[in-house]
Design a protein around this nucleic acid. Structure first.
Length: 483
RNA sequence: GGCGACGUAGCCAAGUGGUAAGGCAGGGGUCUGCAAAACCCUUAUGCGUCGGUUCGAAUCCGACCGUCGCCUCCA
């Protein structure tokens, strides 16, 4: 494998070498489930999805862990996001968590995002987190004040190594008021004392309370992936303080490197501003799926490199939709030709040999830090070559067509997830529909032979109104459902 | 104030020293009864601005301008 990845720890591209050959352990910071996910979240999860898919395509066994934050993630006001959501909807906190976890998975499924192997919840790992805090206290990296336990950043010499910040550079209280009881303004909470009205609380050696936001990731990542694992992914905007704190807690406790490679993604913006819940400039995934196909949404996100920012606009999404449609048209044509191709015909070896450069270009792009824009470009170049061959009326053998289809399935399907295995929408009555369409198209051909253009066109128009596109190709009429 | 990212055609966006990928949109053409699809040609003497290094810079260096993110709990 010659995969190169940009590692935020070293700020450069490095050859990717998992600890164990062909086995990759990977962790990505997951959602806080207090509301529906929106397109902004999708950029991270689709990008990481493609990382996982590509590693698997390269033959690696990937254990992908992505947490579900259901406790301890506070708002600027100091209010727990989960509790605020629960109050808003007048439900139990854990009821809210169930609702939005389900919503999150439903959205990700709809977008073809492969599920993590493990989706651990913070609230299910309270004992482990308490143990971890105890360890940090014993080792002298933490201190307790009034039922709160803080991590002492001055005790951890490497604090800031990921984000490139120095403690002296931080402006205390820039956003959140500094708590007097902290020894250093930059110290962060490992465990927080819960007031009586705080519903989510657990007993601990320091009284009733709940874990700080950062500790869950350190604890759950190491629990399922080992003290040192291969890849830690996340959004660039969380590099500080969240990711930095994860490293500090983990490495202070274990004395070992936390994660070897840090892959961080740029934000999705809209009109140049980050799409976020708090700004209200977001598009929910459900709404986005009403406007665009899941393949277009993925293609849009993958049209920019994962590390950079990407600006959402109606125009850009339409462009992605059209681009993906072009690829689907080619794949549909190949599969349709494949049905009538003779299966025992020998493969056109010279043409298959010509396929290699396209696959190589795709692989080279992906090997270069998952350069999906270039990989998609390679797919488009490939589609053009295939279209040319189909147009030229060369008799392609079943073997050649199957190889081409296989490439689209592998590269566009398995790796990028922008080409489905079945282009026609699933559902009952497919055979009935096929039979009916055959009758209608036969009738229309009869009109055309008789040069009754008005009747033929009217038929096509009415079918189009129902979402059935009819195209008269040189090899005969074809139809497809367009949603 | 500090740290960081970004600025490439009408739009989205690759390219990080060798003379500007790809997609969308636009224009022209081929094919077609028409349409669609597809294919061909075409669209940045130019990569925020100004300097510098170099035989050669979108790519390296410096300054400046602009946009955005983060600075203790927003993916």
């Amino acid at each position: 494998m010659t995969l190169q990845v940009y590692n935020y720890l070293t700020r450069q591209k490095e050859p990717f070498k998992p600890q164990e050959r062909k086995r990759v352990n990977m962790y990505v910071c997951g959602p806080t489930v207090y509301d529906h996910a929106h397109l902004g979240h999708v950029k991270l999860y689709v990008a990481m999805d493609v990382v996982v898919r590509y590693l698997r395509y390269c033959g690696c066994t990937v254990r992908y862990v992505q947490n579900i934050t259901d406790v301890g993630h506070l708002l600027d006001s100091g209010e727990d996001r989960i509790l605020k959501g629960a109050r808003r909807e007048r439900v139990e906190p854990m009821e809210l968590v169930e609702t939005y976890s389900a919503s999150y998975f439903r959205d990700m499924d709809a977008l073809g995002v492969v599920r993590p192997n493990i989706s651990p919840r913070a609230s299910c790992h309270i004992p482990e987190q308490i143990e971890w805090v105890k360890t940090l206290l014993e080792k002298g990296f933490a201190y307790e004040v009034n039922g709160n336990v803080y991590f002492s950043v001055e005790k951890f010499a490497e604090y800031g190594k990921l984000s490139g910040r120095r403690i002296e550079d931080l402006e205390p209280g820039a956003r959140v008021e500094v708590r007097e009881e902290k020894r250093h303004p930059a110290d962060f909470a490992l465990w927080k004392r819960a007031e009586a009205e705080h519903i989510l609380q657990w007993p601990s050696p320091w009284g009733w309370g709940y874990p700080g936001w950062h500790i869950e990731c350190s604890v759950m990542a190491t629990k399922y992936l080992g003290e040192t694992f291969d890849i830690h992914g996340g959004g660039l905007e969380n590099i500080f303080p969240h990711n930095e704190c994860e490293i500090a807690q983990a490495e202070a406790a274990t004395g070992k490197t936390f994660a070897n490679y840090w892959l961080l993604t740029g934000s999705l913006t809209i009109d140049g501003v980050k799409m976020s819940k708090s700004l209200g400039n977001y598009l929910s995934i459900q709404d986005a799926l009403r406007l665009y196909s899941p393949y277009a949404i993925r293609a849009f996100i993958l049209s920019a490199h994962y590390r950079g920012p990407l600006d959402y606009s109606r125009e850009a999404m339409e462009a992605a939709e059209q681009g993906v449609r072009r690829l689907h048209n080619t794949v549909r044509a190949v599969r349709s030709r494949l049905k009538s191709a003779s299966p025992q015909a020998t493969a056109d070896l010279s043409y298959i040999a010509d396929l290699d450069p396209y696959r190589d270009a795709f692989i080279a792009a992906m090997d270069d830090d998952f350069n999906t824009p270039q990989a998609i470009a390679a797919l488009h170049d490939f589609a053009r070559a295939v279209n040319k061959m189909l147009d030229s009326q060369q008799i392609a053998s079943g073997g050649t067509l199957a190889t081409i289809d296989g490439m689209f399935r592998d590269l566009g399907g398995k790796v990028l997830g922008i080409i489905p295995d079945d282009l026609e929408p699933p559902g009952v009555g497919q055979e009935l529909l096929g039979g009916l369409m055959e009758i209608i198209l036969d009738l229309r051909q009869q009109y055309r032979l008789e040069q009754k253009w008005q009747e033929a066109d009217a038929l096509r128009e009415r079918l189009l109104e129902m979402g059935i596109v009819v195209e008269d190709r040189t090899e005969g009429p074809s139809w497809r459902l367009e949603l």
